[in-house]
């Protein structure tokens, strides 16, 4: 465990604790869509961030045990690329949905047209 913390570590800790707090309260308030599985995933992701912040060397141990210690940069780069592709696909899907919504809205509006007379 480090004796001094950098600013980025403090920020990561603050964000992680906030996300865990929010997930826990949402779950116990019974908000819609908050399942136990989602809560566990949230704990795994943000809890993992907290663990890494307190014990940064753990990432090397994990990389070593998995066998990617020499290729860690390639793994990180591939991760970024995958995330970029996912964002691209998501934005494309949103764009398509937006256009479909507009088209439906237009069709519905034009249904009234024959009833109107100048």
């Amino acid at each position: 465990m480090p004796t001094t913390f950098h600013l980025y570590q403090i920020i990561v800790l603050a964000v992680s604790f906030f996300m865990l707090y929010q997930g826990t309260t949402n779950f116990f308030k019974g908000k819609s869509g908050q399942t136990l599985f989602k809560l566990l995933v949230r704990y795994a992701v943000w809890g993992g961030m907290i663990v890494v912040t307190f014990f940064p060397n753990i990432t090397f141990l994990i990389a070593k045990s998995v066998g990617i210690i020499d290729n860690i940069n390639a793994v990180i780069l591939t991760g970024f690329l995958l995330i970029f592709l996912m964002i691209f696909k998501l934005l494309s899907a949103i764009e398509r949905l937006e256009q479909n919504i507009s088209e439906l809205t237009r069709k519905e509006a034009l249904k009234d047209l024959p009833k109107n007379n100048l």
Binding site: I101, S102, T105, R106, E108, A109, L110, D112, L113, N116, L118
Partner: peptide, 14 residues
Amino acid sequence: VITLRHRINRGKGA
């Protein structure tokens, strides 16, 4: 006047 109505706001272009 012929009035058409978008049920939800879709923007000026739409």
